[in-house]
């Protein structure tokens, strides 16, 4: 196969050698890398009949062109298998959606990382973990796909710490941040369909913080569980506190989701209740933030009003993830970004 991509010489395919040669050029995430030989990249692309040199997206700040081939190169580097490529291509499409604001996501001092959520058939057929330990470690699909997406951001988008990523402290979620929705144990059906994406497989990209744990072993009904979710959302340290359009992904474990559904609560009921309960006194927010991006009606609220931490219940996104146990999590966004859900191509 011929193409215009740059090739370079390495002494061997040893992962440490590839890591070191790439590091000299400012590439890589610090871990050993699988050599992206032409044979391996062709194998990665073999499952797709589509044009390998079609530009899927142009990613800021470098304005790098993410073709299927370049996505496949980074998939090989990360240790992906060919069945993961479709998820990565969809994730790149999602990242390029204007509402995601990838330029801001990559430029900010905040530790934001795109969380990739895999929905539907591909989660099962390509081996993604939606159950116990879904956020990792241990599963090839979750780990390698999450890592590959970060490598694409580093190499193609140019989100290199210092030059293209100003994150003050960085963060572990910037290594790999990929999880699958536990559709089998979701009492409300799939998340993608709930936001209007009717496809056998889909991915969501949500640019947010690392997961904040929500632990509830005691409650049998929804309200006490969701009060703890609300408590995890009402931190003055969150970027969403002064940004009313910010989204929160609430990743409910199956047992917490079942407790809500058993009481007759829908996904929308859960979001509405959390919106009602996740509030901070408006005066406290005003005292903490001189710079705010609130909706006009929120600016008009008196200081003693209980201000919702996000403008609308629709900004609270409910996904079922995980296995046995009673730990859920909250993932606040960076603030000036919205999630995107797109179908996985065949």
């Amino acid at each position: 196969m011929t193409d215009a991509s740059e090739m370079l010489e390495v002494a061997s395919a040893d992962p440490d050698t590839v890591r070191d040669v790439f590091a000299q050029r400012g590439w890589g995430d610090g871990l050993p890398l699988v050599a992206p030989t032409a044979e391996r990249v062709d194998d990665m692309l073999a499952g797709s009949a589509r044009d390998p040199d079609e530009v899927i997206a142009v990613l800021p700040p470098r304005s790098g062109m993410a073709t299927r081939r370049i996505i496949a190169v980074n998939a090989v580097l990360a240790g992906c298998r060919p069945e993961h490529l479709g998820v990565l291509v969809a994730a790149v499409r999602a990242l390029a959606r204007p509402e995601v604001n990838l330029r801001g996501v990559n430029a900010t001092t905040h530790p934001v990382a795109p969380m990739l959520v895999v929905h539907g058939e591909v989660a099962r057929t390509a081996g993604y973990n939606a159950g116990l330990g879904a956020f990792g470690p241990g599963n090839v699909a979750n780990a390698a796909t999450g890592r590959a997406l970060r490598l694409i951001l580093l190499h193609v988008a140019g989100a290199v710490p210092g030059a293209g990523d100003a994150s003050t402290q960085g963060g572990p979620a910037k290594y790999a941040y990929c999880v699958a929705e536990n559709l089998d144990e979701s009492p409300w059906g799939g998340y993608a369909a709930s936001v209007g994406v009717d496809a056998p497989s889909a991915v969501t990209v949500h640019c947010g913080e690392a997961p904040h744990n929500v632990h509830d072993m005691e409650a049998s009904g929804p309200a006490p569980i969701l009060d703890k979710v609300a408590s995890a959302m009402t931190s003055l340290g969150s970027n969403n506190a002064p940004v009313s359009s910010g989204e929160f992904f609430v990743m409910l474990c199956p047992e917490h989701a079942a407790a809500c559904a058993a009481a007759g609560w829908t996904r929308s009921h859960v979001a509405s209740y959390i919106h009602e309960r996740a509030r901070i006194r408006a005066g406290d927010l005003r005292a903490a933030f001189a710079l705010r991006a609130w909706a006009p009606w929120q600016e008009a609220l008196p200081d003693d009003s209980a201000m919702p931490v996000t403008e609308h219940p629709a900004n609270i996104r409910i996904v079922v993830v995980g296995g046995p146990g009673k730990h859920s999590s909250v993932i606040p966004s960076w603030g000036m970004t919205s999630s995107a859900t797109v179908p996985v191509e065949h």
């Binding site: 090739m7 370079l8 390495v10 992206p36 030989t37 142009v58 470098r62 304005s63 081939r69 190499h155």
Partner: peptide
Amino acid sequence: MEVYAPDGAVGAAP
């Protein structure tokens, strides 16, 4: 041995 560079072309002139 040869391997691919991972960054690809730039899509817009700076």
